[in-house]
Design a protein around this nucleic acid. Structure first.
Length: 262
DNA sequence: CTCAGTGTTCAGTG
DNA sequence: TCACTGAACACTGA
């Protein structure tokens, strides 16, 4: 589910479905990994009876603003999802948290692989990990000069730096590869060697890709046919795009699909 | 049966 | 302290 467009889409759906609703009934799964050891009693006590005022996002993190603190804060990991439904019998598999809402609706987060996290924070925006995040393409203006300065101090491959949440909040593996493909840049290039022109291109492509993905509700089938995204998954079959071979390397610890120039 | 995966964090190194 | 690398985390589906 989980790069910026998917997370923003989940945020919008949640905003529409649960804003203004009162919480009446909380289910918390016993899962010390996802809840990082915070007891289910403490969680339920913090949420039950509260009113949901807003649903906010920064990077890949989402939190609910309630009428009283602390506030629940979600990270999807690789497999986290939100669910919206009415009957308890529809509770999803691997449900970690379910809120009953006044009026009969239910809201839940599931997480198969347990890389996701649900935290209880006094002030999510000012607490780690959210206060450590860098530029969020949708919330912040991408300041090319500032970003250029950051990149000039990083010797790691640009692909690795694109994945660094303290620089580009919300960018994940497919967005990083898509940006570099559309910008015509080699993912192995040390970030500090990029020209101003290359940095400008990265910022432009990043903005365009994320906005477009959000505009189609992060439904990948509606991403433009020209995007590398559609061709990158068939690793074993030597895929091509536009007649050019797609290469697969591990860069920044992640599988990287890229197209050598010419 | 084996392995990779839309992610983060932490230990270890330089 | 900082930048960086690689492993660990947990589980499913190809």
């Amino acid at each position: 589910m989980p790069e910026l467009p998917e997370v923003e889409t989940a945020r919008r759906r949640a905003e529409k479905y649960i804003t203004g609703k009162g919480i009446a009934g909380v289910y918390i799964a016993r899962d010390p990994i996802v809840f990082q050891g915070v007891s289910s009693r403490k969680f339920a006590a913090a949420l039950d009876g509260r009113k949901i005022l807003a649903v906010k996002r920064r990077g890949k993190h989402i939190w609910l603003e309630l009428d009283e603190r602390p506030w629940p804060t979600f990270h999807f990991g690789m497999t986290g999802r939100f669910h919206f439904y009415h009957r308890q019998s529809e509770r999803p598999k691997f449900c970690k948290l379910e809120l009953g809402l006044r009026g009969g609706r239910r809201f839940a987060m599931s997480n198969v692989r347990r890389f996701g996290r649900i935290r209880l924070l006094e002030d999510p925006e000012r607490c780690p990990p959210i206060n450590k995040l860098g530029f969020d393409v949708l919330l912040d203006k991408l300041d090319v000069e500032k970003i250029g300065r950051i990149l000039s101090g990083r010797a790691a491959a640009i692909k690795a730096v694109l994945l660094d949440q303290s620089v580009f909040a919300g960018v994940g593996n497919w967005i990083a590869d898509e940006v570099l493909y559309q910008a015509g840049l080699d993912p192995h290039r040390p970030a500090c060697q990029l020209s101003t022109e290359a940095v400008t291109k990265i910022c432009r492509c990043l903005g365009r890709i994320v906005r477009k993905a959000v505009a189609v509700d992060a439904e990948s089938a509606r991403f433009p046919r020209s995007w590398l995204f559609h061709y990158r998954w068939y690793k074993s079959s030597q895929p091509t795009i536009d007649g050019k071979r797609i290469e697969f390397d591990v860069v920044g610890g992640r599988t990287t699909a890229w197209v050598p120039r010419r």
